[in-house]
Design a binder for these strands. Structure first.
Lengths: 152, 152
DNA sequence: CATGAAATTTTCTCCAT
DNA sequence: ATGGAGAAAATTTCATG
């Protein structure tokens, strides 16, 4: 599917505030409400807009201890990789998990309440997963920037 | 502010799909539409729900080259840190930036179109920032998991 | 893509617990 | 204070040109 400059501007607005009314959007884009409505539907149908979510302030809910864990697997056979990835997907503490180049390695972003909870997560959950070779964790001191908005 | 089990369930639903109508939410929570409405307003007022956003599918817009850059500053004086953080905030390619423990170090998540664009980003933008000592980049092979939803 | 009408949803008021 | 029912206001959605 193709998207033009107006779609790009529309996506920018929606990525920043998806609760704006189509009327508000139409004013910013100099379009009619219907035109905005149809463009949004097109972006949703095509899958470019994949989800609408509410973002929760971590610190307001007392859950702002963030750790990054580098993980190496003992072996990298298809089986182990698939199994590891499936198990990681089920851990709610893991917000992000990336398979990285370099050392056939994973990077996990883990969110818990505090250091104690992190220790428990490591002992009770992460290291219970088979085939993990080594881990190396770093802790967040400060979140300098965090956006979900992609510039197009 | 306090939030109970119903608020927690409501946050779970909103973090997954913020476009549900209050009626749909009321059915899932066994509440009236008004009760849902008031709870949502309370969560917004208190800042627990800080933003509503549309999530864009990176691969659908041909922008799915993700790099993680570890950065060390030459010095760690207040001035340098503040300046570095301000500049990073203005780079649209940087989606996330964390100040980490350990080596007085930063971790950046960078999103660009492809390796060529990443090279340009490094040469033209990142290394143009003063006081950067060393950088180390890793590239994403696969996004195993990525959620914005916090479990409460 | 715009206009205008219909359907749905949000939002408010009032009342009960 | 908290939540429910229903009316009013606003918005989304659709038909037509």
């Amino acid at each position: 599917m193709t998207f033009d400059a107006i779609d790009r501007e529309l996506l920018k607005l929606l990525q920043n505030d998806s609760k704006q009314t189509n009327k508000a959007l139409s004013l910013q884009l100099n379009l009619s409400v219907t035109a905005v409505y149809e463009r949004i539907k097109k972006l949703e149908k095509s899958g470019i807009v994949k989800q609408y979510v509410a973002l929760v302030d971590k610190s307001k809910v007392k859950k702002d201890f963030v750790a990054f864990c580098h993980i190496k697997l003992v072996q990298h056979s298809q089986d182990y990789v698939v199994k590891f990835e499936r198990e990681v997907n089920q851990l709610h503490e893991v917000l992000e998990c990336y398979h990285l180049s370099g050392d056939y390695d994973y990077l996990l972003k883990v969110l818990v309440k505090d250091m104690k909870a992190f220790r428990e997560f490591m002992v009770e959950k992460l290291t219970k997963i088979d085939h993990i070779g080594s881990t190396h964790s770093m802790f967040m001191i400060n979140e300098v920037k965090h956006t979900t908005a992609i510039t197009l």
